[in-house]
Design a protein around this nucleic acid. Structure first.
Lengths: 355, 355
DNA sequence: ATTTAGCACTCCGTATCCTCGAGTGCTAAC
DNA sequence: GTTAGCACTCGAGGATACGGAGTGCTAAAT
């Protein structure tokens, strides 16, 4: 059943007032502020019905109303006005987006921090699809007679390196050979195809018994591990304490430590994040993770290229300023998509501003 | 003036009891536990004197006693017993020390996390002296006709890379030339000698007007930035909320956000950390940073090699289990020193256990 | 000269009670 | 359908009382 215009207006007023003040909203206050020229008594009737329908809740009988998750949901879906960012805000974001680093993990990390700082909520940032990155090239650089550095380069300019030290001497020609071998075997493969089995096949094909190949297997494994680990960053967890809903130490504690376990956060949010392209809002119980049941999450994803997606998001109380957060988040996400889309400019070249 | 044996015994009992319970300690409780066969009245007299001398404090007239910073200081200097770690604990640490990664920043980060997890306090880890790292070698790897990757290798196996994309084409020979140029000019120099001035000199000497050199200047700068930024990691800040002294939300907030500003933490602790080799304990007001005035810090440093030092530390309330924390910290620090001291074994080679 | 027992006193933490006010739901009039 | 009026509910916050842990002091005991 569709709600009457007036009910919607009232619901919206309740949500917005509560978002601002964190205090239950009473009929009188609503009568004064909502652009309705009706008395508080009428509003009381409407409130009673909205409560009946499940959009509002009462902390106790004689308190004002507070939006229920369902209420927030309706607000977010239908009532919320697209928030326009102020010039200042866009400027601030644009400035921050001029990241110097283009290394994937650095960018992700930075993006998370930025979002947290921008919204005053804890934020997280993650990348999805690292295992599908394609290997473009191996290079082995001799350091001294017993060690070399392996550099693997993939799509999206992701580069990883690792130092190897060997029990035996190694000559430049040997290294060359190994390089060729690796390149012919693995270029074009994705990272998660880089399994020990494949390695053994390659080793066999080359007829070589260096044992070196197995070294590089472990290298590849570490690269993967590393990428996956660095696929989630959280920032600004201390902002939790800014909000009155977390005066309760126990709650704050729980949420905080949940947020610092990057892995579980990633798992809980990977699915929702992937299922769509634009901004997603998960309100309280809509979250799968128990720890987030009375917490809301706003997610935005951006395109990294080469089949990878990045996700940035914000975590906060259900009483969250969804409009503002969503606006900022999607602006940042767009910015990041552009950043990854456009070819990297050489440092020093002036870049053109967004307007 | 030296305290009497009995006073010391009492002081120690107060400190240890308070560390455990976080409750002011009364004369009766002390009479019962300290190995003294005197009555509570006698102890009251002693307590009064200890308070007079500034080693103890009274939250209010009719409460028990609490150690003052000065009291903790004496405890730490003279009364604290070297804590022996249990076999389990050493095992736990040893296991954790078998870090796969040897990349400097990863190790530092890991070390911080480990310590926090081990002690249940927030921890931090930093490296000191990155700017003094010596450049060992540059490598430039052609990616495609308009981009290349620069790899710089320094002491301590620190390797950094960055992708460059150029407005113009670039040939393999050109790259070779550039590489030689960079290597002759900069190998053997430390990172902080890698200034724009030096760059200009080199460019001039080579008679080249590529402008490429300036690109690499910026690379070097970024490497430095990057290293410095990644020179501080904090972990486990949420542990703050475990301790009753931070029930006061405001305090918790302040400390937390202070801890997440890595830079200022680093500055505040760089000095004390450097001035000695073994474990350092800073109690409350002994900290220079205002934000840490009622917080204690335990620091241990370890040797990374090539003139670099690493510092790990723990932050907590002045009522901290100094003995345990110091023991764990120095054990970990020793472990790390050894880790950096011994040559890296090739993966797969079984490493010998500590006993 | 210490040490100890005894005792009056202090002061915090807690529980209890009370009041106040915001807000509700309902009824009856508009 | 709307509004005014009113009794009622319930929590927040303030005052008051109480119990207990702990002290400091004095005087006796060792």
């Amino acid at each position: 059943m569709e709600l009457s215009e007036r009910k919607k207006k009232i619901l919206r007023a309740v949500v917005e007032s509560y978002i601002q003040t964190a205090e239950p909203v009473g009929s009188k206050a609503l009568a004064a502020m909502a652009g309705l020229k009706v008395s508080s008594a009428t509003i009381r009737n409407e409130l009673a019905e909205l409560t009946e329908l499940g959009y509002l809740e009462q902390p106790h009988t004689s308190a004002g109303r507070v939006p229920s998750p369902q209420g927030y949901r309706l607000y977010v879906n239908e009532l919320m006005e697209e928030q326009r960012l102020s010039l200042e805000e866009t400027k601030q974001i644009n400035d921050a987006l001029h990241l110097k680093m283009r290394e994937l993990d650095k960018v992700i990390d930075q993006a998370g921090r930025m979002v947290s700082q921008l919204t005053n909520y804890p934020a997280f940032a993650m990348a999805e699809g690292v295992r599908r990155l394609t290997i473009r090239r191996f290079d082995l650089i001799l350091v001294d007679s017993v060690s070399f550095i392996a550099v693997v380069m993939t799509d999206s300019s992701v580069v990883k390196n690792k130092l190897f030290r060997l029990p035996a001497d190694l000559s430049e020609p040997q290294l060359q050979l190994l390089t060729t071998l690796l390149n012919t075997a693995f270029v074009g493969k994705t990272l998660d195809q880089l399994t020990p089995e494949l390695m053994r096949v390659a080793e066999h094909a080359a007829g070589s018994s260096y044992g070196l190949i197995s070294l590089v297997v472990s290298f590849a494994m570490e690269v993967l591990d590393d990428l996956e680990r660095s696929a989630v960053y959280t920032a600004g967890t201390s902002h939790i304490l800014d909000h009155p809903e977390y005066q309760d130490l126990g709650k704050a504690q729980k949420l905080m430590s949940y947020l610092s376990e990057d892995r579980s956060l990633a798992e809980a949010l990977a699915l929702p994040a992937l299922s769509g392209d634009d901004t997603k809002i998960l309100i309280g119980p809509e979250n799968v993770a128990d720890e987030l049941k009375d917490t809301s999450v706003v997610l935005a994803s951006y395109d990294i290229g080469d089949g990878m997606k990045g996700v940035i998001g914000v975590v906060g109380p259900t009483r969250m300023d969804y409009a503002k957060v969503a606006a900022k988040l999607s602006y940042v996400a767009d910015g990041l998509s552009k950043l990854f889309g456009q070819p990297e400019l050489p440092p020093g070249t002036p870049e053109k501003e967004e307007t």
